[in-house]
Design a protein around this nucleic acid. Structure first.
Length: 202
DNA sequence: GCGGAGATTTCC
DNA sequence: GAAATCTCCGCG
């Protein structure tokens, strides 16, 4: 794995890619590789579950009420990390998409662990592969993503995404997003994308 | 300032 | 099914 990731420049997803609409990016990110480099070592996973957030109709989006200090990064151009703290104990990792001023993002909900498994296991305190990164809070813990990563450029070394094997439409399931019941009309938007049959989804 | 609620996870 | 636990945000 480490060897395969030595020369990845041409696989690195560009700022131009992230500046598409959140829905498009959420679908396209399925199968992409999330690469995390930290002092403890490199951890890598394949994205198997995403959710799109954004637009004037989407009450579930943090940016819906306008820009605040927390959501400031969401209103910048796509290609940067938006990390927030939730329920007093967990972090969620998002990818800012669209153009400056849009206020949209894609939540990474689950990845399939591919490299750095020992590091992830130690951070998560479990050996069970399907429990390492099968949820937004879990994968942040496994990859040691915290608010210190808010605003990080996704073309930088510490955190980046590489295009992976193409995922065809027949392998993709779309469903409503999780835990957004409070969001009136937006709660039924089918903006959650899953790789069909993956045991690593949340 | 205060209080409510949240893109969750875990354990009883 | 509820607790853990803390920041953000709206209201005054």
């Amino acid at each position: 794995m480490e060897k395969a990731l030595e020369n990845t420049k041409e696989l690195l997803l560009s700022h131009q890619f992230y500046q598409q609409q959140a829905l498009t990016v959420a679908r396209q990110l399925l199968g992409a590789l999330l690469v995390r480099r930290s002092p403890a070592g490199m951890t890598v996973g394949k994205i198997v579950e995403t959710e799109a957030y954004g637009g004037p109709e989407d009450k579930a989006c943090h940016a819906w009420k306008g820009m605040t200090e927390r959501t400031r990064i969401m209103f910048g151009p796509g290609g940067y990390a938006y990390v927030y703290f939730i329920y007093g104990m967990y972090h969620c990792f998002n990818i800012v998409t669209g153009s400056e001023g849009d206020g949209q993002a894609v939540l990474i909900r689950a990845i399939e662990p591919l490299a750095g498994l020992e590091i992830m296991s130690a951070r998560r305190n479990t050996d069970k592969l399907t429990n390492l990164c099968s949820g937004p809070g879990k994968l942040c813990q496994a990859l040691a993503i915290t608010r210190a990563d808010n605003g990080v450029d996704l073309c930088s070394d510490q955190l980046q995404l590489l295009s992976g094997e193409a995922v065809s439409d027949s392998q993709v399931i779309q469903t409503p997003r999780k835990n957004v019941d409070y969001a009136a009309g937006a709660k039924l938007f089918p903006w959650r994308f899953i790789i069909k049959g993956s045991p690593f989804v949340s």
